[in-house]
Design a protein around this nucleic acid. Structure first.
Lengths: 230, 230
DNA sequence: CTACTTAAAATAGTAATACTATCGAAAAAC
DNA sequence: GTTTTTCGATAGTATTACTATTTTAAGTAG
């Protein structure tokens, strides 16, 4: 999977950085260091000064790659959505049956990221936790509209579009495919957060991953008005 | 509705304020002013200094009511969840049929707040928009666990518990009632945000409120495995 | 009417944050 | 081997999120 991912140029929209961090050693240290540090401190307490100290560089050097810590968060989110899109794509490759395709895609979307598939230079497990707790802050801002115009959220939209297509392949008359899938994606993240911090807002069950089971049941029963799904 | 709401003391957990803003004229101006200003500027650009200027007071005076702007956001969120809980309670009062009860509760949860039911001193329409764009920032922090221990999120949990009961009244064996309802609540807010700013992540339809319709269909098909719902 | 209490305005100050600007050295590219 | 790019070093600024202290005004109790 790393081979394909790295062979695709520009997984992240170039409006989010001043200089491509993948292009230099320092750039990669900035991205990796920021993942470690945001994971550790949370986005609010994370600063470029602390990051610079961690990676043995200077604040000014970090600013040469990212205009602001908000743009860095956009970068990380965007990277994550691209990665997830490939993960979904891979999970359905060579699978022909429509329901099977959707089921696999949903699993890819909702399962907990625990193992480092890390052939790449990014720690996906930490990035997953960051996305759960911080990624909504990337778009819940006054600058969404402008950033959206620059295509910053394209990766996310592509992912939603891809899985929506799988829904429509099963039920072409279903009216809310994007709503359904964005509900699943954001919901699955949120339920993980609730399970860790506000458990009364969710349900945890022994012996199964309740998040995966719930969203699978939810999607299939919602789209199949009068059909059955095993 | 105002009579009942105001007759219930402490709709908001007292850990979020230093001094109850409902107890004084200045306190009420702080709350109302903050709603106007956060609505206008967004939570990031909102400061106590600007608020003080708006309401003709001083920064130090605002700090006598709220320890931080984060606590003020917790206050506003908590107020909103209590208000929503009463809205749901009212919508199902005297309704006996289980499916009808759930349907009405879901409508209360997902419908757009457009009219000021404002007998009260709070502008619910603006508060609704604030909750959509900012309320997740109230719990997506490093201090959630501690704040949760102080009962800051009780109003939200009560709301989820109340509607979950309505789900269980229809299908007592349904395994994920809290997950379902918190998915609906957060999802409905998010879809409103997407409709305004990232429309490719949602679906809008003419002549119907797609958010309400979608979540109604979703909930009923998910909980009724082999039943029908008109 | 006065003493006491509470509330809020006025003013000042601080540490940290989120940047911006400039300059020189070293490394890389041509 | 020179030009360009890259980065480190240093310095500085406006703003933010608070804290502290003192003064003034308003209620309230006896």
């Amino acid at each position: 999977m790393d081979i394909i991912l790295s062979s695709i140029r520009q997984p992240v929209n170039d409006h989010v950085y001043l200089k491509d961090p993948e292009s230099t050693e320092l750039g990669r240290r900035i991205v990796n260091g920021s993942i470690d540090l945001i994971y550790e401190l949370g986005f609010e307490a994370f600063t470029f000064r602390k990051l610079a100290e961690l990676i043995g560089s200077t604040e000014a050097s970090v600013y040469r790659y990212f205009e602001s810590k908000h743009k860095l968060l956009l970068y990380l989110s965007s990277w994550y959505w691209s990665w997830m899109d490939y993960k979904v794509l891979f999970s359905i490759t060579n699978i022909t049956e429509a329901e099977d395709r959707l089921e696999r895609a949903l699993l890819a979307l909702t399962e907990e990221v625990k193992l480092d598939t890390n052939f790449l230079h990014i720690d996906e497990v930490k990035l997953y936790q960051i996305v759960i707790a911080e990624s909504s802050k990337a778009y819940l801002t006054r600058s969404v509209d402008e950033e959206n115009r620059y295509g910053v959220f394209t990766a996310y939209k592509n992912l939603v579009a891809r899985v929506s297509e799988l829904v429509l392949a099963i039920n072409p008359t279903f009216k809310y495919p994007h709503m359904l899938i964005s509900t699943v994606i954001e919901g699955a993240h949120l339920q993980r957060f609730f399970a860790s911090h506000l458990p009364r807002l969710t349900d945890t069950l022994q012996g199964e991953d309740a998040v995966c089971s719930f969203y699978r049941e939810m999607v299939f029963s919602t789209i199949q008005v009068a059909q059955d799904h095993a």
